[in-house]
C-alpha cells in the first residue's frame, strides 16, 4: 500500500452523509470522514467530528469491530434564527471491522479541533515480528 498521497490543493465541501436508520437516538446522525492508517504494530484512525468535544465520544471495541459514536457538545442557541443553512447539526456514528485484534487495554483516544485520533495497538499475537535469519 502506498503511503504517498496526493491531495486536492483546493478544498471542496462534501455533503455530510446522513445515516438513514440509527436506532432510537433523537436527531440526525452523520457518517464522519475518516482516515485509517497502519503504522508498525498499531492502527491509527482519524475522524472529522466537527462540534464534538472529548466528553461526547464513545468508542466501543468488540473483538475486531470498533464502533464510534459522538454527540454534539452544544446545540444552536434557540434564540438564533437561521437565515441560511448549509450544514445540519447532528451526531456521528461509524463502525469499522479491523483485520487484526486490538489490545483494548491500550487503546488511546484524543481530540483536537474537532478531529478524533484513535490509536489502536494490535494484540501481541497479531503483531508483526522480525525474525532474524542466522547463518548456519
Amino acid at each position: 500500500m502506498s503511503s504517498e498521497v496526493t491531495r486536492a490543493p483546493e478544498l471542496q465541501v462534501r455533503e455530510k452523509q446522513q445515516i438513514a436508520e440509527e436506532g432510537t437516538r433523537p436527531g440526525a446522525v452523520f457518517r464522519p470522514d475518516v482516515d485509517i492508517l497502519e503504522h508498525g504494530d498499531e492502527y491509527l484512525i482519524y475522524a472529522d467530528l466537527p462540534g464534538v468535544d472529548e466528553q461526547r465520544v464513545r468508542i466501543n471495541l468488540d473483538k475486531r469491530v470498533l464502533s464510534l459514536d459522538a454527540e454534539l457538545a452544544a446545540d444552536v442557541d434557540p434564540a438564533w434564527s437561521a437565515l441560511h443553512t448549509e450544514y445540519h447539526l447532528g451526531g456521528f456514528h461509524r463502525e469499522f471491522r479491523l483485520s487484526d485484534e486490538i489490545d483494548a487495554a491500550r487503546v488511546s483516544a484524543s481530540m483536537r479541533d474537532g478531529v478524533l485520533e484513535l490509536r489502536l495497538p494490535k494484540n501481541e499475537a497479531h503483531q508483526s515480528r522480525k525474525i532474524e535469519v542466522r547463518a548456519a
Binding site: M1, S2, D33, V34, D35, I36, Y43
Partner: peptide, 10 residues
Amino acid sequence: DMSAHRLERQ
C-alpha cells in the same frame, strides 16, 4: 512510513 487503508479526509 504509515500505510494508508482509507483516506477520506481532505
